[in-house]
Design a binder for these strands. Structure first.
Lengths: 300, 300
DNA sequence: TATCTACCATGAATATTATGAATTATACTA
DNA sequence: TAGTATAATTCATAATATTCATGGTAGATA
């Protein structure tokens, strides 16, 4: 079994994407090259590495064993590479950083300016989307900032800071719908990230069962900025992280509907694969991110 | 830094031998190939991996970092390779087993017949020498059985069994030298593995200080079998593990000089690099070896 | 069922990379 | 200073990886 890093890389990419064509794209070679590489590797391993389960590509038992080894091997080599550079006074490497759309576009890019300046050798790429877990798991992203609670094998989670939420609406809307108490929202159009209304969970959870409104009219909007704008237009009440609407509160274009209500808070976490947690550039970025305080966010 | 396993292997071999020519021999390629490989690797790492300290080759800082990574990487890959084979019902791989000369040649080879039969896929190579630690550390040996106490970074030690020693001499010799008590050995020719007489340490340590003989006449012989044969020829008194001379005692060609004396015992240990301890073939062999009881050795 | 479409496998040609033989360079030794 | 052991070079060649062009297959679509 004369192993070979190129073949292992090809195998690893296929294993992560479960798609030869996509793996080839990721490696900047042709699909044929990947196919050849994996075939040769399988031959020298003496066993097929991929099989087909219901039309889909899937790792065989041997494939799974090799995949684990590849993870360890590549992370180990990456670590060594970085250390060698670091020992010579250079920090290097790329961090593919993921975050939710609103947080990323409005705050993260601004706040990270300092980190990027401090670490000129480290390149940071951004991906702002709602789906963050899968890209993290198959190495499309290295580091992810999310307020959702993920659990997965080999994933490391670091708490960052707390965000609190606010119920928002325009002045006119409130007047028109006569909103006084939480129950009143039952008869209002409600803006939510999801049709089921789970998005409002933190709000509902903060209320005694008797006072919980039952939403009749939910409008789905898959971006927080869209919810904010819709609320300003008087299309409904929204529920968003407070840091997103500080300006609007100040400009009085939006109202914090229940300012006295103590809402359950969500925690922002940084997620990364355990194997990557040892990377210096990851540790540096994490250290930087940990200094983010909600206050600073509000100032930003 | 486009790494490559061949280059890493070349580098690793050079790092272990600190000699390009020797590394080449080990990899079954020419010195030129190794030189090329390491040079290319160094270029892509952006730093020299070896430097010369007083004419001797030595790892640079970057080299040391890479060496650590290589260790992890190669052991990881080897483990994967073995697991893949094992998952398909085959046990494979080679174990380079080291032991002291006398123990290895007389007992180990016999006793391991069972293991070799049970594990047809696993190949065992033997190296019986006195110097076992260094070959173990630079991977010339995978597993070493030794009664000496070694301590080194990243080395794992498993106790096997105890051996006890005996002072031996021929009947004629004892008569001629009138040996009755330990002190009498001071005026006898003494057979030892080392000129300094440290070999007899366990014997001397078993005696109260007052009864300790001071050897005047030490003959160095670097094989236990040689000591035994010399003792039989009447060239001196020897000090050897009891299991080596059971036959001679029975045939009355040698005498157990102080049978009543409770000699300090030495423990036999199996040593292996920590990284290799996870290998299945290692675990199997260790399990087999642990079943060795002194009694069985005597029967063998 | 015929026809797409999105995949992956294969074979031959080509580009790239590793290796070996021979030689030169270097450093230590006597 | 020559002698020895070792590493670096150079250049030709062998081995390997990659591409290009093509064929095959399974699932989806009409």
């Amino acid at each position: 079994m004369a192993l070979n890093l190129n073949q292992l890389k090809a195998f690893f990419a296929v294993a992560q994407t479960l798609n030869y064509t996509e793996a080839a794209r990721r490696l900047y070679v042709t699909q044929s090259a990947v196919s050849h590489a994996v075939a040769t590797l399988a031959k020298s391993a003496g066993d097929d590495l991929f099989g087909k389960a219901g039309g889909r590509l899937a790792l065989t038992g041997s494939g799974k064993i090799l995949y684990k080894a590849c993870e360890a091997v590549f992370y180990e080599l990456e670590r060594a590479e970085e250390q060698i550079a670091a020992a010579r006074g250079r920090n290097t490497g790329t961090i593919k950083l993921g975050a939710t759309v609103e947080f990323g576009t409005t705050l993260l890019v601004k706040y990270l300016k300092g980190f990027i300046k401090k670490n000129p050798g480290v390149h940071v790429d951004f991906q702002f989307r709602h789906e963050l877990l899968r890209p993290l798991l198959n190495d499309e992203l290295d580091l992810v900032i999310d307020c959702r609670n993920h659990k997965a094998e080999g994933l490391e989670k670091t708490p960052l800071f707390r965000e609190d939420y606010a119920v928002i609406a325009s002045r006119e809307f409130l007047r028109a719908h006569k909103v006084r108490r939480p129950q009143d929202l039952g008869r209002c159009p409600v803006l939510s990230m999801d049709k089921a209304g789970a998005w409002w969970g933190n709000f509902l959870g903060a209320l005694p069962a008797a006072e919980r409104p039952e939403f009749k009219n939910i409008t789905e909007l898959n971006h927080i900025r869209a919810i904010i704008n819709a609320a300003m237009e008087g299309l409904g009440v929204g529920f968003v992280p407070r840091y997103c609407v500080l300006k609007e509160f100040k400009a009085r274009t939006l109202v914090n509907v229940f300012p006295q209500l103590k809402l359950l808070e969500d925690n922002f976490y940084v997620y990364q694969k355990t194997g990557k947690a040892g990377l210096e550039r990851h540790r540096n970025l994490l250290g930087y991110l940990k200094n983010i305080k909600t206050a600073q966010l509000e100032r930003a």
